[in-house]
């Protein structure tokens, strides 16, 4: 419990310890700690930035998707409209063509029937002449009875 020269030794020893710690132990340890703190802070900031970038990218992707969907729907609508138009056009063309075919057929039928009527008339005239000749017992002179024949033919035509 006495103070003696030991204190000198203890003082010197303590000063050496403090000096050594000051010069060689504290700076690298705290340097490493602070450097790591900076690194961690930078890492966290980078992670935050990455998160934000990701969210932005997601939003952009969503926009693009929505746009694409709208565009696709537009295209489908257009295609449907175009298809309907095509069908309408085709129908009209078909109707017109049918009508044309029908009217052509009608015209042909009326031509044919006129021609048949002519032929029939002619045949009837010939048969009438031949019948009259037989009734009269002689050849009817076509030239002499041309007026009569013509009249007959006209009547047949009318009748």
């Amino acid at each position: 419990m006495t103070i003696n020269a030991t204190i000198i030794g203890q003082l010197l020893g303590f000063l050496v310890l403090v000096w050594f710690t000051w010069k060689f132990i504290w700076p690298p340890l705290l340097g490493a700690i602070e450097e790591r703190q900076k690194k961690i802070a930078a890492g966290l900031a980078a992670a935050d930035r990455g998160q934000k970038d990701l969210e932005e990218a997601k939003a952009r992707a969503g926009d693009a998707m929505r746009e694409a969907r709208e565009r696709a729907m537009q295209l489908v609508d257009q295609a449907q409209k175009r298809g309907n138009e095509l069908i309408d056009e085709a129908k009209q063309t078909a109707v017109a063509e049918g009508e044309r075919l029908v009217s052509a057929a009608r015209a042909e039928v009326s031509t044919e029937s006129a021609r048949a009527r002519d032929a029939l008339r002619r045949d009837v005239a010939a048969l009438a002449l031949a019948g009259a000749g037989k009734v009269l017992g002689r050849e009817v002179d076509a030239k002499a009875h041309a007026d009569l024949l013509d009249q007959l033919a006209a009547e047949l035509e009318r009748g």
């Binding site: 419990m1 103070i3 003696n4 204190i7 030794g9 203890q10 003082l11 303590f14 403090v18």
Partner: peptide, 10 residues
């Protein structure tokens, strides 16, 4: 006491 005073005198 020599030790503790060495520290405290520093």
């Amino acid at each position: 006491l020599n030790t503790t005073f060495a520290l405290s005198l520093t």
